Every structure is written in structure tokens, then in C-alpha cells.
Amino acid sequence: MNQLRKTNMTNQEALSKVPEVTLIFWIVKILATTLGETGGDAVSMSMDLGYLVSTGIFAVIFAIAVTAQVSAKKFHVFLYWLTIIATTTVGTTLADCATRSLGIGYAGGTAILFTLLIASLLIWYRTLGTIAVSSISSRQSEIFYWVTIMFSQTLGTALGDWTADTAGLGYVGGAMVFSAMLVAIAAAYYWTTISRTALFWAAFILTRPLGAVVGDFLDKPLSKGGLELSRYSASIALLVVIVACILLIPQKAAKQAH
């Protein structure tokens, strides 16, 4: 009996509160980042609340979601993805507020957020010795995880806008660039010995600007190269697809590294 109890405890400790990194993980991540763009724009632009007020609203939602996620005792797939969506919506309006309302510009916003992201990863690494997702087993590591994600989601919006607008690639061009970069990372995963942790974070970061330009492509005016779809209908459709993916293809908690 004691041996069985120890085995069960070991199995529970071997699981984390983040999902396994599988193909469905990346599909839902891209859908969630796209939803973050259309949802953020729906509140700040379609509802005409502005970037600052919208950021405040989404910041409260993010704070509630991340507190629930960190406080949870085990992996809850819907709570995890709700928190991801919360980070990407607040990241959208926060980046727009910084780059547009404050006049920093896309290049300036991208540079500042990239610096914050790298600093977050370095502090995490120096504090705990690893930034691997498989090492997330404590509240401290989980807080580092979500802070890093928050910076990456905000960076992605600024980077996506910079690529599409300032660099002049447009939404389709930007989507092709970021898709090609993700394909290159996937190739490196299968055919090189580059650190899997480095490749994970590179892919995780790049899915955000991809989602940003795809989201803009869906709801921006035809005159600017978009499809001019309703931000509300696009957001609802993306949410339905995300929920369907989660229900139809169950995701398991990632196993912890020992």
C-alpha cells in the first residue's frame, strides 16, 4: 500500500500545470494569439474604448486568470488556455498603447519589449538554472514562465505591426515571413542538435507576431490589405475553433524533468 501511494505521488509530481508540447499545442497557440489580436482590437477599436482603458480591462482579466493558474493544484486545460488568451489580448492593447498612443513607434516598442523579454529569460535562468518548460514545478518557476509569456505576447504585437506596416511587407507578407521562420525552427528541431529549450522559446515567441498579422489580415480594411471581417465575428469564430480543438484532441500535462 505504501509503495502504491509513493508511486502515485511520484506520478503526480512528474506532471506540471502546462500542457505537453505537441502539434495541437502549436495549433491552439497560433489560434489563441490570433484571437488576442482580433479580441484586443474589438475592445479598443470597435467598442471605441481606446488602448489605455482596454489595457486596464484586459490586465484585470489577466491578473485573475494567472492567479487562478498559479494557485491551481493540477493542470486544467481550459484554465491554461484562458490565461494564454488573457496574456495575448492584454499584450495586443498594451503594445498598441505604447507604440501608437505614446509615440514610441513599432521599432522602438519592439526593441524595448525584446530587451524585457531577454532580461526575463536571463533572470529566470540565473535564478533557477534552467528555463526549460519541463522544469516548471514550483510557484517561482511558474511566475517566471507567465512573466516571460506576457513579454513575448506584447513583443509579438509590436513586431507583427512593424513587419507589416513599417517594413512594408503587408499582412500576407508578414504571415509568410513568420511562417517560414517557424518552419525553419521545426526543421532545426528534427535535423539539428540545437537546444530544444532555445527552439521552444523561439517558436513560442514567433507564433505571436504570426497571430498578430493573421488577426490584422482578418479584420483590417480592404484598402489596407485586410479582409475587413467583423472583429466580433472573427473573435467568436476563433474561440469556437479553439474550444473544439481542446475538446476533440485532449491535451495532457507535460512530464517534469527529473
Rank of each mutant, 00 (worst) to 15 (best):
253 A>E: 05
6 K>C: 14
216 D>R: 09
251 Q>L: 14
257 A>D: 08
219 D>F: 11
59 A>I: 13
59 A>K: 12
114 F>R: 03
49 L>P: 03
183 V>I: 15
55 T>K: 12
161 D>E: 04
42 A>S: 14
16 S>I: 07
142 E>G: 12
131 I>Y: 04
1 M>P: 11
128 L>K: 01
166 T>I: 06
74 K>I: 00
173 G>M: 06
24 I>E: 11
95 A>I: 13
169 L>Y: 10
186 A>H: 08
185 I>E: 00
166 T>Q: 01
28 V>I: 15
39 G>I: 07
234 A>I: 13
127 T>F: 00
196 R>M: 02
120 S>C: 14
23 L>Y: 10
45 M>I: 15
58 F>M: 10
43 V>Y: 13
170 G>N: 02
23 L>C: 13
132 A>W: 00
94 L>Y: 01
161 D>M: 01
48 D>C: 05
158 A>D: 02
144 F>N: 01
75 F>C: 11
250 P>H: 11
15 L>V: 10
99 T>D: 08
189 Y>G: 00
138 S>Y: 04
161 D>G: 05
103 G>V: 11
26 W>G: 00
128 L>Y: 02
188 A>H: 04
26 W>P: 04
18 V>S: 05
150 M>L: 14
3 Q>L: 13
90 V>H: 00
108 G>S: 03
120 S>P: 09
59 A>P: 14
202 A>Y: 05
224 K>T: 15
148 T>Y: 06
52 L>C: 00
245 C>P: 00
107 A>I: 11
73 K>P: 12
147 V>D: 03
153 Q>D: 04
174 G>K: 01
55 T>H: 11
213 V>M: 09
21 V>C: 12
208 R>M: 09
247 L>D: 13
107 A>T: 06
175 A>C: 07
10 T>M: 13
25 F>W: 09
59 A>Y: 14
248 L>S: 12
91 G>P: 02
77 V>G: 12
160 G>N: 03
176 M>R: 01
96 D>M: 02
97 C>F: 14
22 T>H: 09
24 I>Y: 10
153 Q>W: 08
220 K>V: 01
229 L>C: 13
28 V>F: 09
220 K>S: 12
